[in-house]
Amino acid sequence: MPHRSSTLNRRLVRYAFATLFAALSTQAAWAASFDCGQAKQPDERAICASRQLSEMDVEMAVRYDTLTGLVAMGTRGDMQDEQRAWLHERAACRGDRRCLRASYTKRIDTLKREYDQLKSRGPF
């Protein structure tokens, strides 16, 4: 039995890597956390046109979603307000990639600090 389990695990790992490689080798890997096919605003179009900005958008979205899943409802509401305010700030960058990179860097750093603060308060 251990041999069969080991073979299955290797197949699953190979499948996971093949799937990941296929996703990364297509332009879909550039996809932001939103549907680029629906991107209409200048900031959204700039994000979808840039691999770096798309990756930053995905990182920000994953950090935000993870963090909001770990906090109480009241805090979650505050975080949603902060996120909406940040999205408004991001939109003010329009298509300026330097501005967008700075905006994402600032937001990601904020989310990292909020996570570190949450982590320091208790066991998970």
Rank of each mutant, 00 (worst) to 15 (best):
S33V: 01
R63P: 00
T26L: 14
R94L: 06
R76V: 02
R51H: 11
P123Y: 09
S50Q: 09
D43R: 08
M1C: 04
Y15P: 00
L67C: 05
D96K: 00
V13M: 08
Y115K: 09
D78A: 14
R10Q: 10
M1H: 07
D96R: 00
C99T: 02
N9I: 12
C36L: 11
E55W: 14
E59W: 01
D57F: 05
S25T: 09
Q41P: 00
D81E: 12
R90L: 15
A23I: 06
R107D: 02
T19L: 15
V71I: 15
R45H: 00
R121F: 08
D35F: 06
E55R: 15
A28P: 00
P42F: 07
S120C: 06
F34C: 03
T19K: 13
R84Y: 05
G69C: 12
A61R: 03
R90F: 04
A46P: 03
S103R: 01
G69W: 05
A22K: 07
F34G: 02
R45D: 01
R51M: 12
S5K: 10
V71C: 05
E89G: 01
S50M: 07
S103Q: 03
L67N: 07
R10T: 08
R14K: 05
L20Q: 06
T7A: 15
D109V: 04
C36P: 07
R51E: 12
L12E: 11
W86H: 03
D78W: 12
F17K: 15
M56T: 05
R45P: 00
M56E: 13
M60H: 09
Q27W: 14
G74K: 13
S6Y: 12
E89V: 05
A39I: 05
T66W: 05
R121G: 12
Q80A: 06
N9L: 15
A85V: 05
Q83N: 09
A49T: 02
D35G: 04
A72Q: 04
V62G: 10
F124G: 14
R4D: 08
S6I: 15
Y64I: 02
Y104F: 10
R63I: 03
T7R: 15
F124C: 11
R63A: 08
R4H: 07
K119P: 01
C99H: 01
P2K: 10
S5L: 14
A85K: 11
T110Y: 11
I47C: 01
E89L: 04
Q80G: 02
Q80F: 11
K112Y: 02
R51F: 14
G37M: 08
R107K: 11
C48K: 03
V62P: 00
A72R: 08
S120A: 15
R101W: 04
Q38Y: 02
S54E: 06
T19W: 11
R51S: 07
G69A: 07
R107C: 03
V62K: 11
N9V: 12
L111I: 05
A102D: 09
